[in-house]
């Protein structure tokens, strides 16, 4: 039972993390290869604060706020660069974060932060908290998608210049996506820190950034349900196959590239296509007419 609780807690944290990146990359179309830095910011921030005596809930929130502010700054730089360069910029942010944290003695340097206080919940309670926040983030994502914010995000992701021409302040929307997404990543980080009770810089490296992006892309960029399914699957992989841990970057990076090359819509896109093909075939069998106009909607 303890093992399942651990696993579910990790899945909950990963879900928050992947859905937070989906807001930025999936909804608003801004690629990020440095999302782990914001997760790390939240983790360090919350850990330092609870160690200094602050209760867990405000520390968790503070981690989210600090990560969101950092995200806002990175978002500001994203306004200056074109899409392809954004990948490199955010990757750079990831490496900068690691380089910075490693050299700070007050953050424990290479050894990280240990002796992080217990959050004051049972393991089961903590699992419920993680899954609960993940569910809230999922509901929030579904709502954003339906709102006018999601509507405008679609336009920004699709064609920035044309979005501007119809009066959409592209910069404001990008900054909103970055701030929201990175703040949620910071919350995930705080949750992780108080679950692991010890954090080291290496956890928040490039491999993790690629893993999170793989969860989003494999699930289907922008599809909340797709990302949830992919996150659960990819979170289980290292548990089911121990060797995965040694080849994470290779495996998740490979999955990422394969999906982008062969099925850009990810699992969500595949499901949609299969569903339509099935329905088309059924229609054909029933009515024996060739329905060449069946549209992918």
């Amino acid at each position: 039972m303890a093992y399942e609780i651990t696993l579910l807690t990790i899945i909950g944290i990963n879900l928050i993390l992947a859905l937070s990146l989906n807001l930025i990359t999936g909804f608003c179309g801004q690629i990020s290869l440095g999302h782990a830095a914001f997760y790390g910011t939240g983790a360090y921030c919350a850990a330092i604060l609870t160690k200094a005596g602050l209760p867990f809930p405000p520390a968790l929130l503070a981690g989210g706020v600090v990560a969101g502010l950092l995200g806002l700054i990175v978002g500001l730089t994203s306004l200056r660069v074109r899409e392809d360069f954004l990948a490199i910029t955010t990757m750079g942010v990831g490496f900068l974060f690691l380089g910075f944290v490693r050299k700070q003695s007050w953050l424990g340097g290479e050894l990280g932060v240990s002796g992080i206080p217990a959050p004051g919940l049972s393991d089961l309670g903590y699992m419920v908290l993680a899954i609960g926040i993940a569910a809230a983030v999922a509901l929030f994502s579904l709502y954003v998608r339906r709102s006018w914010m999601g509507f405008a995000f679609d336009a920004v992701a699709d064609d920035e210049d044309t979005a501007r021409v119809i009066g959409i302040g592209v910069a404001g929307y990008k900054l909103t996506a970055f701030a929201l997404g990175t703040a949620l990543a910071g919350i995930a980080g705080g949750l992780y820190a108080h679950y692991a009770r010890i954090i080291v810089p290496d956890t928040f490296g490039f491999t993790l950034s690629v893993t999170i992006l793989a969860m989003v892309v494999v699930g289907g960029i922008g599809s909340t349900w797709g990302v949830i399914v992919a996150t659960v699957l990819l979170s289980l992989m290292p548990e089911l196959f121990r060797f995965v841990n040694d080849y994470k970057l290779l495996l998740f990076g490979g999955l990422l590239l394969l999906t982008m090359r062969f099925s850009p819509g990810g699992l969500a896109g595949l499901t949609r296509e299969t569903w339509h093909r099935l329905r088309r075939n059924q229609g054909r069998n029933r009515e024996q007419v060739d329905d060449g106009t069946a549209a992918r909607s």
């Binding site: 006018w148 914010m149 336009a155 119809i166 009066g167 929307y173």
Partner: peptide
């Protein structure tokens, strides 16, 4: 989307509709 330019004017307020 263009017809809703008043709704998309402010990113944060756009979340309310």
């Amino acid at each position: 989307l263009a017809a809703g330019r008043r709704r998309t004017r402010d990113p944060l307020l756009s979340l309310l509709h």
